[in-house]
């Protein structure tokens, strides 16, 4: 219980910090992003003054104390008002982000879970069969795939599997001739388009988990309780799972933050290479067009997503490790 409260407090604190960081970055940076944006917007044609004001609140108003601006910013944030996008003028940022968000959530959510499960199981297997051909092959392969740059793997996959072999589409999140809707044809098309990006993320992201798990598990397999489990005459499989993997997975969860960071960064590059209609590609375009309100909002959403994912990993750790739980029979 105490652990849960602690993690919740940390989540709340980091969320607040991310929001505040988002407020401060455009204001502390050289130049005047707000002014550049407003000028750009005016150049597009007649603008709703309310939207211009919202942009100012996101990026820095010319007037008012910093505190006043902060209060306004928080107020707008809580009402889902993130200003207007320059690239997708006159759409508000929120609606642009809302379109991209599900794509990334599904792509990154699925691949994170797949890489974690795949990497952890392969790592456990490699550790329990240490020194065999499987161990050697797995670690050397992972050594290579994990150090390949995401975008390069993506380019190669695109070239070979998309351009040369025509097995998969080369860009986009769905067949461009279709309208996004909940039809089976559209869903099939979306899944088909997402296979290649997902494959690249899984291929590159699995290695980190594999190494983490393998090293943890080798450490755990040397512990006295594993030796005792052997002496107990338990089947090998049970020792590897209930004693080895069960204990080794805990430190692997502690490393979740770093591996997730790698995946998030990697997915931005992968989405860009495949022109996948998610947050990463949107961020790429926003930066390219100096669309600051859109960029800030995407950054905020990516950060919040990462924080929540880390929170879930922390909670999972708490559930799996009895030492974080209080109570039991002893006083």
């Amino acid at each position: 219980m105490r652990y849960l409260i602690k993690r919740l407090a940390f989540l709340a604190f980091t969320l607040w910090l991310a929001v505040t960081l988002n407020f401060l970055i455009p204001r502390l940076m050289p130049g005047n992003p707000a002014q550049i944006m407003v000028q750009k917007l005016v150049g597009e044609g007649p603008v709703n003054p309310q939207l211009v004001r919202a942009v100012g609140i996101m990026l820095g108003l010319p007037r008012g104390t910093l505190w006043h601006q902060y209060v306004l910013y928080m107020h707008n944030l809580l009402h889902g008002n993130f200003g207007v996008s320059y690239t997708y003028f006159p759409y508000p940022v929120m609606s642009v982000v809302a379109q991209a968000l599900p794509w990334t959530l599904i792509l990154l959510g699925t691949t994170t879970i797949i890489t974690f499960i795949l990497g952890t199981s392969l790592g456990a297997l490699a550790a329990s069969r240490r020194g065999t051909w499987f161990d050697t092959t797995a670690t050397i392969t992972a050594n290579f795939t994990a150090t390949f740059p995401f975008f390069w793997t993506a380019l190669m996959a695109l070239y070979i599997l998309g351009f040369v072999l025509h097995w998969f589409p080369q860009s986009g999140g769905y067949n461009a001739a279709m309208m996004p809707q909940w039809s089976s044809a559209f869903v099939i098309s979306a899944v088909y388009h997402s296979i290649l990006p997902a494959l690249v993320i899984v291929l590159t992201g699995t290695g980190g988990w594999l190494f983490g798990m393998r090293n943890n598990m080798i450490h755990v397999l040397g512990e006295d309780y594993v030796r005792l489990a052997t002496a107990k005459g338990l089947p090998r499989r049970e020792i590897a799972l209930a004693y080895g993997a069960r204990n080794a997975i805990l430190p692997n969860l502690t490393g979740f933050a770093m591996s997730l960071g790698t995946l998030v960064g990697g997915s931005i590059l992968v989405e860009t290479v495949f022109s996948y209609p998610g947050m990463g590609y949107l961020l790429f375009n926003a930066v390219g067009n100096s669309d600051y309100p859109l960029m800030q909002t995407i950054f905020l959403f990516i950060t919040i997503g990462t924080l929540v994912a880390n929170f879930i990993a922390d909670i999972l750790y708490g559930v799996l490790d009895p030492r974080t739980r209080r109570g039991g029979v002893s006083a």
Binding site: G261, I268, I302, T303, T306, L307
Partner: peptide, 8 residues
């Protein structure tokens, strides 16, 4: 550690 580095 938890603020994603590459987007930042």
């Amino acid at each position: 550690l938890v603020i994603p580095g590459f987007p930042l």
